Each structure stands twice: as C-alpha cells, then as structure tokens.
Amino acid sequence: MQYHRGGDREAMWWAGAQDQQGNGWTARLSPNTPMHVVQAFATALAHPDPLMRPRGRVPLSARVRPGSASVTPSQLSAWQQARITPARAATWARDSARRTRPRTTARPHAPYGGVRAHR
C-alpha cells in the first residue's frame, strides 16, 4: 500500500498488483474512507495464509505456485469463520466503544411545533 497526494493535492491510499500478462487489480481509498476500513484492508492484504481460489482461476506467474487441496464444505466453512469471527469481534468492539463515549455536542432540537422522529 502506498499513500499518495494527487496533482489536485487530494490524498489517497493506493494498492495494486499485476501479473506478467498485464492482468491485475487496483484499489484506491479516498480521504473519506474510515481509517478502520483502510486498516482492515491492509491487514487482509498482508495476511500470510494462502488464498483459496477455484481451480483454473489463478493467474500464471513464475512467482506464484498454485497448489491443489481437497477441501470439504465443513472445512471451508470453518476456514471462513476463523477469518470472519475476529474481524466481526473487532468491529463490534469498535462500534460499542463509539456508543459508550459521552456526547460532545448537543442533539439538534425540532423547531416549536415541528415533528420530531423517535427512535
């Protein structure tokens, strides 16, 4: 991942990859992207575990050596849960910390006689 400032001075995070045939992907995260999303993306990108892909969907490369593994549906589900559960827990922890922080600004009030939505 790289941090860039464009010609118009707008900042962004950038990541990308390309194989020898020119196939690839890029990701651009704007200044409006929440930092926890940038962090989660970078963490997932740097994760050392191999990425499971369907047979025949791995680009040809001298650097990538695809292997084959037989995986049962229950093994695949367990593998997915092992990655999803910590991410979900971190999100819930972060969101609950936000909800427990005291308000620093007053809530807006409806004008006299106006309708106010209730939660």
Score class of each variant (00 low, 15 high):
118 H>C: 10
29 L>F: 01
73 P>Y: 08
65 R>I: 02
44 A>P: 10
21 Q>L: 13
17 A>D: 12
117 A>C: 07
83 R>L: 07
88 R>C: 10
92 W>C: 04
89 A>C: 06
38 V>K: 04
66 P>W: 04
116 R>T: 11
15 A>N: 02
104 T>I: 15
78 A>R: 06
85 T>V: 13
73 P>S: 12
26 T>D: 13
29 L>N: 06
69 A>M: 07
114 G>L: 01
51 L>V: 12
73 P>H: 10
72 T>P: 01
93 A>M: 12
60 L>N: 14
101 R>T: 12
86 P>S: 11
119 R>T: 13
76 L>K: 04
37 V>I: 14
86 P>M: 08
61 S>L: 09
19 D>L: 00
113 G>T: 03
59 P>R: 10
56 G>V: 11
62 A>H: 03
1 M>R: 00
42 A>K: 01
46 A>Y: 01
29 L>V: 10
66 P>N: 09
107 R>S: 14
12 M>N: 02
44 A>L: 15
29 L>M: 12
90 A>M: 09
8 D>M: 02
35 M>D: 14
11 A>P: 03
105 T>N: 00
13 W>N: 03
97 A>W: 06
4 H>K: 07
117 A>M: 07
90 A>S: 15
61 S>M: 06
4 H>G: 06
32 N>Y: 02
119 R>I: 11
53 R>A: 15
89 A>L: 07
12 M>Q: 08
57 R>A: 15
19 D>S: 03
69 A>R: 14
66 P>T: 03
79 W>I: 07
73 P>A: 13
9 R>T: 07
86 P>W: 04
118 H>D: 14
95 D>H: 05
67 G>F: 00
87 A>M: 15
24 G>Y: 05
50 P>A: 06
37 V>F: 13
38 V>P: 05
69 A>V: 14
30 S>R: 14
15 A>S: 12
75 Q>I: 04
27 A>G: 05
28 R>F: 01
116 R>I: 05
55 R>E: 15
20 Q>E: 12
12 M>T: 01
111 P>W: 02
8 D>C: 00
109 H>K: 15
93 A>S: 13
34 P>R: 11
113 G>L: 09
95 D>G: 03
108 P>K: 06
63 R>F: 10
8 D>I: 01
115 V>D: 04
36 H>L: 11
2 Q>K: 09
21 Q>D: 14
61 S>F: 10
95 D>Y: 08
87 A>K: 05
49 D>H: 10
110 A>R: 07
37 V>Y: 08
20 Q>I: 04
8 D>R: 05
85 T>Q: 13
5 R>S: 03
29 L>E: 00
97 A>I: 04
32 N>L: 15
96 S>E: 14
84 I>C: 02
35 M>G: 07
29 L>S: 09
11 A>K: 05
72 T>E: 05
109 H>R: 13
14 W>N: 05
25 W>M: 09
38 V>E: 01
77 S>A: 14
4 H>R: 13
106 A>Q: 14
93 A>D: 14
6 G>L: 04
29 L>K: 11
54 P>Y: 03
65 R>Y: 05
87 A>T: 15
3 Y>N: 08
118 H>Y: 09
90 A>K: 09
29 L>W: 02
73 P>V: 09
102 P>F: 04
15 A>P: 00
52 M>R: 04
64 V>E: 09
53 R>D: 01
58 V>C: 14
54 P>V: 08
87 A>N: 06
64 V>K: 01
62 A>T: 05
54 P>K: 11
103 R>I: 00
53 R>N: 05
